[in-house]
Amino acid sequence: MIAMLGRDLALGVRAGGGFGLGLAFFLIVVTLVPFGVGPHPDLLARIGPGMLWLGALLACLLSLDRIFALDWEDGSLDLLATAPLPMEGVVSMKALAHWITTGLPLVAAAPALGVLMNLPAPAYLPLTLTLLLGTPALSVIGTFGAALTVGIKRGGLLLSLLVLPLYVPTLIYGAEAARRGAAAQAYGTPLMMLAGITCGAIALLPFASAAVLRVNLR
């Protein structure tokens, strides 16, 4: 399983663009927001946490179809399914690799992009904290969506349609906690709920993803 993770990370770094692409997309989305809503610092500071969350979510979504598509095309997925690794483990490692290559850089970049959004000083800690807690859920849920659509040609759009509704609770609690943090209110409750969703998703969704992947391989 560690070999699995190592391979996916190596692929993510070497496969040209996979690693930085999500990050660049995140930057572009955040740059475009002021063009869309106007450059007023107050307005930007108010919508900043939400926009950063939305940007991170979209950047995450963008790279989901790569999770299984390449392994599906070159036959690795068939071979992995017949290998002694449990499918649940394979799926979890895929999600973890996706998080390390996509989610973690987003978390790291978010404070820097927060500057572009004129975020007030107390907003940075809750923003980073919510993204750190929330992005794993995005990766795990996205892995489920990717497993559902792995056999479908041009499944990218369908993948978005399936995954985005599943992202709703994560986004609501994450953005709400970040917003409350930015407004210097208590944000413990939404943060707990976010952590709960992340833990639940990590614990349960790999079983669904693995089941769905087995169906798709047959």
Partner: peptide
Amino acid sequence: GHADGIKQVL
């Protein structure tokens, strides 16, 4: 199977 499961960049 028909496909070798080889990663091009490795």
